[in-house]
């Protein structure tokens, strides 16, 4: 699936809920489906700076696509990471780099996060794009 289509799917999914409690419940269940990082890769170098809870993201490059696995010690954060990975994992570096992140505003996620969590979200997206950029420069 293309990034844009996945984003549309997420927007539709979140529109289905009446209130923020239900959205959080959904995010928590998404967190439980996160493609988990191998324990051996839970190292300092894969920690994302700027998050108040711990977030590890591990990138791999297979058949021209970037695959991410991740984990966090906070479950709502895990849900946020799961949403991002659903959009950005298993995509080409080029698609990841040119993707916008409007869907985050459209589902109202950012305004419902505390400022520290919102900063963490920005750091996560930045880090995913950095990895994509690194793989793309390997290709060129």
């Amino acid at each position: 699936m293309k990034i844009k289509d996945i984003q549309e799917e997420i927007i539709d999914e979140f529109a289905f809920f009446d209130d923020w409690m239900q959205r959080y419940e959904h995010m928590i269940s998404l967190g439980k489906s996160l493609p988990l990082i191998d324990q051996a890769n839970k190292k300092e170098e894969y920690l994302i700076k700027g998050c108040q809870s711990k977030v590890w993201v591990y990138p791999e490059f297979k058949d021209g696509k970037v695959l991410f696995t991740a984990d966090s010690d906070a479950i709502i954060t895990k849900g946020i990471v799961a949403l991002l990975l659903r959009v950005f994992s298993n995509q080409t570096p080029e698609d990841i780099l040119k993707a916008d992140t409007d869907f985050i505003d459209e589902i109202g996620l950012k305004e419902h996060l505390s400022p520290t969590r919102a900063n963490g979200l920005v750091s996560m997206i930045k880090q995913l794009k950095m990895y994509a950029l690194a793989y793309q420069s390997q290709l060129n």
């Binding site: 923020w20 409690m21 959080y24 108040q52 809870s53 010690d73 906070a74 479950i75 709502i76 954060t77 505390s114 969590r117």
Partner: peptide
């Protein structure tokens, strides 16, 4: 088994201000 941020986030949605961290 629960991260303090997660608890703080949920109770905030219910109008309660506590500190986490």
């Amino acid at each position: 088994g629960i991260h303090p941020y997660d608890i703080g986030t949920i109770v905030d949605k219910l109008g309660i201000a506590v500190r986490t961290g």
